[in-house]
């Protein structure tokens, strides 16, 4: 009969109306400032620099100022100045560090290429989306201190990826330690051999060969 469709439609909306008060799943609206959105792990906004500890972010930056990200960044928003001296990095190796590391977030397009190519797992993508500033030049140009976030924070936003990175870094560190130990042992053996056979002058060449076998295994 004419009009039955209208009555069906009215019933549907009436059901919506009543349901919206009693069935929370119906409502898709997020009351944003009060209810924070739960972001998916792969959500990315702007880059951050991972530091090992939160207490000394500048001393424990993973970044070694290799400048790969600066060269690869498609909109060229990264600016890095290398240090003159060296500091031990995460694996204990002596490395340079960035004196200046700046990202212009007004230029950054959040592509995440920098985080993908960083060989030191130093630059990662943050999930901060409230980035409004009162000054569009200085306010949006983030420096080293603003970009540095602790590893714990990185774990809090991307637990899966961060655990993977940590495992890899720990393995590298172990390998480096084993290598150092082997080198030390070889050195000691060489010194002992030297002491035992002071007459054997042409010995250095085989001794230098000795630490090499463990290194490929590591």
């Amino acid at each position: 009969m004419l009009g039955s469709g209208i009555i069906k439609g009215l019933a549907v909306t009436a059901k919506n109306f009543v349901g919206s008060y009693f069935v929370p799943e119906r409502m898709v609206t997020e009351q944003y400032p009060e209810d924070r959105p739960k972001l998916p792990e792969n959500y990315r906004s702007f880059p951050l620099l991972v530091s090992e500890t939160a207490e000394d972010p500048m001393g424990t930056l993973r970044c070694v100022a290799c400048q790969i990200c600066e060269k690869e960044c498609p909109p060229q928003c990264i600016y890095i100045e290398k240090s003159k001296d060296k500091k031990p990095d995460a694996t204990g190796k002596m490395q340079l560090y960035p004196v200046v590391f700046a990202i212009d977030t007004s230029v950054c397009m959040s592509c995440g290429l920098c985080a993908e190519l960083c060989p030191f797992d130093s630059i990662k993508m943050d999930q901060v989306f409230e980035v409004a500033a009162t000054n569009r030049f200085a306010g949006l140009l983030l420096n080293r201190e603003q970009l540095a976030k602790s590893n714990a924070y990185y774990h809090s936003i991307r637990p899966v990826e961060a655990a993977e990175v940590d495992a890899r870094l720990a393995a590298d560190r172990q390998a480096a330690e084993a290598k150092a130990k082997a080198a030390a042992a070889a050195k000691a053996a060489a010194a002992a051999a030297k002491a035992a056979a002071p007459a054997a002058q042409p010995a250095p060449a085989p001794v230098a060969e000795a630490p090499k076998p463990p290194s490929p295994a590591a």
């Binding site: 909306t13 009436a14 919206s20």
Partner: peptide, 10 residues
């Protein structure tokens, strides 16, 4: 407000 509720909005 009513239109919102009729369409499951706030």
């Amino acid at each position: 407000k009513l239109l919102g509720r009729l369409q499951n909005r706030l």
